[in-house]
């Protein structure tokens, strides 16, 4: 069973997925941060593949990507860093990135290497469903890598159903019309959207992401989905203090009652 499915088969509520950028704050931090997150109780880890032109990302993730690139981070190096991933980490690991670096790496080789190191899923925001279905789906499936799709408040009902149909693992429910970035609160319009989707009774689990930054926003999101994803707020934490203790207490501040 794909580790993502395993998580959802055991846990229906309060699934915490944390995003961080590979090679940030320091180039060799990738595995350390992943291990610390798992030990702190995170359910899913999402590792960002740094890219020069991340159009869906706000300043926080842009900045971490650029610094990682400047330090010499690359997809090749990331795969090397993850070589022994499964010796250390049991929870699902997802790679998030943009399609261009993946194409240069070689799409088939990418899927092959993901499988080899034990990556469970991939999020490529600029690979929409039509292109996915035409050229990439077969290879993803051949290697058992889940391609995670996004939905937004603007996604039509018809498309939500298509996404549900095409999805495996979970659907990444983007919380508002926005690029990534930590926000302070959840608006009524967002809650209306969460409720609208909740009522559709989709067969695939949903995690809410973008703008989830603390216990309050996390708990709020968890009322409408199986869990939530925290990205920029965690990068902000790393900017302040990236020690294992600080990471552990950040995670604790979200999941501890």
């Amino acid at each position: 069973m794909n580790r993502i499915d395993e998580v959802f088969s055991k846990k229906k509520k309060g699934v915490l997925n944390i995003y961080f950028t590979a090679g940030y704050p320091k180039i060799n931090d990738t595995l350390r941060i992943a291990r610390t997150l798992e030990a702190a109780g995170v359910d899913i880890i999402e590792i960002g593949i740094p890219y020069s032109d991340p159009i869906a990302d706000g300043p926080t993730i842009q900045d971490s990507s650029q610094k990682a690139l400047d330090a010499g981070m690359s997809l090749k190096l990331l795969m090397r860093q993850l070589q022994d991933l499964r010796k250390h980490i049991k929870i699902p690991v997802i790679l998030m990135g943009y399609i261009n670096p993946v194409l240069q790496y070689g799409f088939t080789k990418f899927c092959q290497d993901c499988k080899e190191v034990g990556i469970d899923g991939v999020i490529l925001p600029d690979l929409p469903m039509q292109e996915y279905a035409e050229m990439y789906q077969v290879t993803f499936e051949e290697y058992g890598i889940y391609n995670i799709f996004l939905m937004t408040p603007q996604t039509s009902e018809k498309r939500v159903l298509q996404i549900n149909e095409a999805s495996k693992g979970f659907i990444y429910m983007v919380s508002s019309a926005s690029i990534t970035g930590a926000k302070q609160e959840v608006s009524q319009a967002q809650i209306d959207y969460f409720e609208r989707i909740q009522k559709m009774n989709l067969s695939v689990q949903r995690l809410i992401g973008f703008g989830i930054s603390n216990k309050e926003t996390f708990d709020n999101a968890c009322q409408y989905a199986s869990g939530a994803i925290i990205g920029s707020a965690f990068i902000n934490q790393l900017n302040k203090d990236d020690s294992d203790e600080a990471i552990t207490s950040f995670v604790g501040s979200i999941i501890n009652p």
Binding site: I99, P128, M151, T152, V174
Partner: peptide, 8 residues
């Protein structure tokens, strides 16, 4: 090749 956010 655009993110879902731009697709509509």
């Amino acid at each position: 090749y655009v993110p879902e956010m731009l697709l509509p």
